[in-house]
């Protein structure tokens, strides 16, 4: 009787240990896949949403979905599987945003011809990098403040300040030379 109890107890321990071990292995595999694919998934999410905060959310959502389906998804199907998850989230997001009419009616996209002076100016300053041009365009064409530009670009406000300063200085030199 006593022996039977001991056996049963060790069997339960065995089951418990193996499930702990399995969960540990799952987490380690997720960590490995995360390190391998997070950059690509984030970049893709950003291209679908154009917003860094959403790209961050969608990337973590996709990896959470991967964790839920880790036993069904083979490594060879990645990162395509993660891309599909992100894409579905993005389509759903834009459909919802459009249905709420925050985009379709509130923002009439008009007068696309009057802003060429800035483009001319920016294209003349050949020393400017994309990040400088983005900061200048968002600041002076879109009228965004540094905080908004930081949200859009993922740079710190100090970096935005430096980029604006450098960009303006270069434009100034270009125009006065």
């Amino acid at each position: 009787m006593e022996t039977d109890k001991t056996n049963r107890s060790s069997g339960a321990d065995y089951v418990f240990v193996s499930s702990v071990e399995r969960e540990k292995n799952r987490r380690e595999r997720l960590a490995r896949l995360y390190d391998q694919h997070v950059h690509a998934v984030f970049r893709y999410a950003w291209r679908l949403t154009g917003r860094r905060d959403l790209a961050e959310d969608f990337t973590s959502e996709a990896f959470l979905a991967l964790h839920r389906n880790l036993d069904q998804v083979e490594d060879a199907r990645l990162p395509a599987w993660l891309f599909t998850e992100v894409r579905n989230l993005a389509i759903e997001y834009w459909r919802r945003a459009s249905r709420e009419q925050t985009l379709s009616e509130a923002a009439p996209f008009l007068r696309p011809d009057g802003s060429s002076s800035l483009v001319d100016l920016l294209s003349r300053a050949t020393g400017l990098k994309p990040v400088h041009r983005i900061c200048l365009t968002l600041r002076y064409l879109y009228g965004m403040d540094r905080q908004e530009i930081a949200r859009q670009t993922g740079l710190s406000e100090h970096q935005i300040k430096s980029a604006l300063q450098y960009g303006l200085e270069l434009l100034r030199r270009e125009l006065t030379s």
């Binding site: 154009g50 923002a107 008009l110 007068r111 009057g114 802003s115 064409l141």
Partner: peptide, 19 residues
Amino acid sequence: WREQGHPPPSLLVASREDV
């Protein structure tokens, strides 16, 4: 330069991806 009527940058980027 500050004009109204440009789509937000997020829409510009997303317009390339058919979403």
